[in-house]
Amino acid sequence: MSTTLPARQRPKQPLPKRPRQALRWGATAAGIAAVVVLHALAIQGTEFQPGLLVDGWKGMAAFVADAFPPDLDWEKTLKPGLEATLVTLWIGLLGTTFSVPFALLLAVLAAQTTTPHQAVYQVARAILSFFRAVPDIVFALIFVTAVGLGPFAGVLALICHNTGVMGKLWAEAMEEIDGGPQEALRTAGANRIQQLANATLPMVVPQFVGLLLYRFDVNVRSSLVLGLVGAGGIGLLINQSIKSFQFDAMLTHIIIVLVLIIAVDQLSAFIRRKLAA
C-alpha cells in the first residue's frame, strides 16, 4: 500500500503549472510601463533637471555661508523670534480648538452611522469638502481683507480649513468603530442624541483625541506659512529677514521653529501614549 510508505519515498508528483501565468506577467509589465511613462511626463512637466542644481551649487553655498553663524543677538533677533514663535503657537492652538464644535457637528451629520438623513449627509459631506479643498492660505488672504493683517486672520483661516479636515477624519472614525453599543441603546429606546452621547462618542474618544493632536501638530506648521502672507508670527519674521538679506537672523528663526515643532511632536506623542494605556 502506497499509504504506508514514508513521505520521502513516495513518487514525486510533478508540480502543476500555475494557471494563467502569461497573463499575469503581461499585466505586471503593462503596469510598470505605465508608471515609467507617467514619470517621464512628470519630469518634463516640472522641468526637472539635476544638471542645473550641479551648475548652480555656488549660489546655494553663498546663501548658506551667509546664514552662518546664526544671529544670536537677544534684543534684535532672539527675543522677537521667541515672541513671534509664541504667536505662531497660539494661532495653531486656537485654530485647532475653536474648530472643534464645527467639526464635531459636521462629523456627526456626515457619518453614515449617525446622520439623521441621507440628504443631510450629502450636504454635510459637501460642506466639509469645500472647507478642505480651499487651502488655509486662501482663507487667510480672504480674512485679511476683513480683519486686516495679523494673527487674528490666521486663526480664522485655520478654523475654516481645520473644520473641513478634522470633520472628515472624525466622521470616518465614527463610521469605523463597532456600532453594537449604539444598536443596543436603540433597542433600549434611547433617542438619536442619547445614542450619540452614550455610545458612539464615548467609543471614539481615543481616536478623536489622537486626530485632534495630529491636527494641532499640522496647524502649528501651517500657521508658519500663514505668517508669510501677513498673518503674523514667526513666518512673518522669516519672510522679513529673507527680504532684507539677513540670512543669519533667518537661520536663528528656523532653529527656533525646529525646536517648537519637535516639542509639539513630542508632546502629542506623549499624550497619545498615555491615552492608549
Binding site: 463597532d178 453594537g180 453599543p181 444598536e183 443596543a184 441603546l185 433600549a188 429606546g189 434611547a190 433617542n191 442619547q194 452614550n198 455610545a199 464615548p202 467609543m203 474618544v205
Partner: peptide, 17 residues
C-alpha cells in the same frame, strides 16, 4: 455591546435612557 471606557454603573444607567 457595552461601552468599555465607561463604568459598569454608567452602562447600566444607559438602559434607562
Amino acid at each position: 455591546h457595552l461601552v468599555p471606557r465607561r463604568t459598569a454603573l454608567d452602562n447600566v444607567c444607559a438602559g434607562a435612557l
